[in-house]
Design a protein around this nucleic acid. Structure first.
Length: 334
DNA sequence: AGCCACAGTCGGTTGGATCC
DNA sequence: GGATCCAACCGACTGTGGCT
C-alpha cells in the first residue's frame, strides 16, 4: 500500500496537488539545486534537494493533464472549464476582453463531412434505419457502413487527414467573402474588421471529423475594437455559406483516382445572442461555450466506441482496405 | 501598357505539445 | 528548461484577368 511508504497526512498533502488526477505520471529520480555566482559561474551551496524515493508515495507524482474525459476525468474537467471560460470571455467579455465584445456579430457554425456511403443510424423522424432495424442509442452498429464492400473507406480516412487543410482554405475564403460583401478589397479589409475563430473538431459516429466553430466579426484589432456598421450576423452567415461551399482541397492521387475534399452539404449556421435572450433558433453565449468546452474534451471513443488515438482508430476503421499511401497521409497529418 | 483586384501559395510568427 | 515540431494565423508575393 502507498500509505505504508509515508504518513497519511503527508501522503494526503502530496496527492492533494494532483487535483484528483487518476492517472498521474510517476517519476523516479532526484534533483539538486545549487546557488551559482552569476558573475563568476562558481557553484556554491546546495539550495534544495529532492529525491523521489523520499516522497510519501515513493515517487514524484505529476498530473497527466490528459484532455480526454475517458482517460482522466479530473484533468479533462480542468481543461473543459478553462475552455468554457476562454470561449465565454470571447463572447461576453472579461479576463482582459472588453464587455462590448458581446455586441459583435457572431455565429455558431457546424461543418460536416461529406458522405462516404450509407451507415447504420438512428433517424430523427422515428423511422427505422435503412437496414430495417430501430437501433438502440448504444448499439455498436451505429455509424458503421451498411455495405462494407461499397463504403468509401479510402476517402473517409483521407477526409480526416485533409480536414485541417480544408478548414484553412475556408478561413481564407471567408475573409474574402466578408470583404466582398462589405465592398472592400482584401487589402483594405484588414483596416476595417477582423474575423476571429474558435474551432473544435468532433468525431461523428461514422468516424469522420466535423467542425464546430464560433466565428466572430470584430474591429481592425479584433475583440478590442468595435466592428464597422456593415458587420452583421446576417452578412457573416451569408459569407460563411459561400466560403464553405467554395472551399476545396486536392488530395492525393491513389491508383489513378484523384481525391478532392469539400465540406458536406449539411452546414448549420446559427447566430449567438446574449445570455438574456434565448428565444427562437438562436443560441446563447453560455450554451455555445458549454458546447465548445464539451467537444474539446470529447474523444473519438465517445462517438465511435473505439480508441481515442486517431491513428489507431482510423487504422481500425479502415482495417485492410486503405492503401499504404493513405496510411502515410494519416501518419503525417496526425 | 499600366493599374487594380482576385486567387492561390509561401514564409514568418506564435503558441501548444512533445521530446530530450 | 531548452529544443524541436506542428498547426494556425497573417501578411506578402506571384500569376491571371478585367478594365481604362
Amino acid at each position: 500500500m502507498l500509505a505504508s511508504l509515508g504518513t497519511m497526512p503527508e501522503l494526503a498533502r502530496q496527492l492533494s496537488v494532483l487535483g484528483g488526477c487518476t492517472h498521474p505520471v510517476r517519476l523516479d529520480g532526484h534533483r539538486t539545486e545549487y546557488a551559482v555566482n552569476t558573475a563568476t559561474g562558481e557553484i556554491g551551496n546546495v539550495l534544495r534537494h529532492l529525491d523521489s524515493a523520499a516522497l510519501p508515495a515513493g515517487q514524484l507524482l505529476v498530473r497527466c493533464n490528459n484532455r480526454r474525459a475517458t482517460r482522466c476525468a479530473a484533468c479533462a474537467e480542468t481543461y473543459r472549464r478553462d475552455t468554457y471560460h476562454l470561449i465565454t470571455a470571447g463572447l461576453r467579455g472579461g479576463k482582459g476582453t472588453p464587455e462590448q465584445v458581446s455586441t459583435h456579430p457572431r455565429v455558431f457554425a457546424t461543418f460536416t463531412a461529406p458522405g462516404f456511403g450509407p451507415v447504420h443510424n438512428r433517424r430523427t423522424d422515428g423511422r427505422p434505419c435503412r437496414c430495417g432495424t430501430h437501433h438502440d442509442q448504444e448499439d455498436a452498429a451505429l455509424g458503421t457502413p451498411l455495405n462494407s464492400d461499397t463504403y468509401d473507406y479510402e476517402a473517409a480516412v483521407l477526409w480526416n487527414a485533409h480536414a485541417g487543410a480544408l478548414w484553412r482554405r475556408f478561413s481564407i475564403y471567408l475573409r474574402r467573402e466578408v470583404a466582398k460583401r462589405a465592398g472592400l478589397t482584401q487589402r483594405d479589409f484588414r483596416d476595417h474588421a477582423r474575423v476571429s475563430f474558435a474551432k473544435v473538431a468532433e468525431y461523428q459516429k461514422r468516424g469522420a471529423v466535423h467542425f464546430h466553430a464560433v466565428i466572430r466579426l470584430g474591429g481592425p484589432e479584433g475583440g478590442d475594437t468595435s466592428p464597422p456598421a456593415w458587420a452583421t450576423a446576417e452578412l457573416l452567415t451569408d459569407a460563411i455559406r459561400a466560403a464553405a461551399t467554395a472551399a476545396r482541397i486536392d488530395g492525393p492521387q491513389i491508383d489513378s483516382r484523384a481525391h478532392t475534399f469539400a465540406f458536406g452539404r449539411q452546414l448549420d449556421v446559427r447566430p449567438i445572442r446574449s445570455a438574456d435572450f434565448d428565444g427562437g433558433q438562436d443560441l446563447t453565449e453560455r450554451a455555445v461555450a458549454a458546447y465548445i468546452a464539451k467537444y474539446a474534451t470529447k474523444g473519438a471513443e465517445t462517438a465511435t466506441g473505439t480508441l481515442d488515438r486517431p491513428i489507431r482508430f482510423l487504422a481500425e476503421l479502415a482495417h485492410a482496405r486503405i492503401s499504404d499511401h493513405a496510411r502515410r497521409m494519416i501518419r503525417t497529418a496526425w
